Amino acid sequence: MCNETSSRGTHSWPLEPLSRRSAGLTALSLHDENVRFATTRGVSEHNRSANFVPGYLDSVSGEWVLSRFRDGSPAPVHVLDGLPPTWVARRDAAGNVVQTRPGIVSGFVRDGLFYTREEAVLALC
């Protein structure tokens, strides 16, 4: 039985502060999301068997992409290095993505649809 409820209503996980969400994704923010959803189907480990694939959404354009390594190969978890160049705000000296631009959201893709972490949890209830 699923005890999770919609992120649009009551929910059992804390919301990330708006200032942090609007700053863009970083390795630290992805880690924080994984910790927050660790015991739910909002992480790859718990939803992979239901054909959810890690991905990202540009909340402004509505475009989504799958999570990829820097070389373009599919990543089994959320990584930032394979994002489209226009989605990147900052890179380190080695060219690794350090931060996305605001409005990029991590989540999952299944059957051609993007799901936020919260929506993935609810879809599997």
Rank of each mutant, 00 (worst) to 15 (best):
W87F: 14
E119N: 07
L83W: 06
G62D: 08
S19D: 13
V121K: 06
L124D: 08
L30M: 07
A50V: 08
L25E: 02
N34T: 05
F114T: 07
L18Y: 15
A93Y: 04
G103D: 13
R41Y: 02
S73L: 00
G24T: 10
V35D: 01
T26F: 06
E118G: 05
H78T: 02
A38E: 05
R91I: 11
S6E: 11
D111Q: 13
V60Y: 11
A38L: 07
P17V: 09
S22T: 15
T40I: 09
N96S: 14
T10S: 11
W13E: 03
G72S: 10
S67R: 00
F52Q: 00
V77A: 08
C2D: 12
P76K: 04
P76S: 15
H31G: 13
E4H: 13
E33M: 11
D111I: 09
D111Y: 08
P17Y: 04
P74K: 01
V43N: 00
V60Q: 13
V121N: 01
S49F: 14
R8A: 08
C2H: 10
G112P: 13
M1S: 14
P84M: 08
L28M: 07
V43F: 00
P74C: 00
G62C: 06
L28E: 01
A27E: 06
S49K: 05
V97C: 05
F114L: 00
L124S: 07
L83C: 04
Q99A: 15
R36L: 13
D58N: 11
V105I: 14
E45W: 06
P14E: 04
A75I: 03
H78W: 03
N47T: 04
R110L: 02
T116D: 11
D71H: 07
Q99V: 04
R90Y: 10
F69L: 10
S6F: 08
S6C: 07
L15D: 14
P14R: 03
L25A: 06
G112H: 09
T39H: 10
T26Q: 00
R90N: 12
H31D: 05
R36H: 12
T5C: 05
R20W: 14
V65L: 05
Y56V: 03
Y56D: 03
S61R: 12
E16D: 15
E118I: 05
Y115D: 01
R41K: 06
T5S: 15
T5F: 11
G62Q: 07
E118V: 02
F52L: 01
L80D: 04
R41E: 01
S59G: 10
T86E: 12
A23N: 09
A38M: 11
A50K: 00
G95T: 06
L30S: 03
D58S: 04
A23C: 09
T10D: 13
T10W: 14
S6W: 13
G112C: 01
G107F: 02
P54F: 03
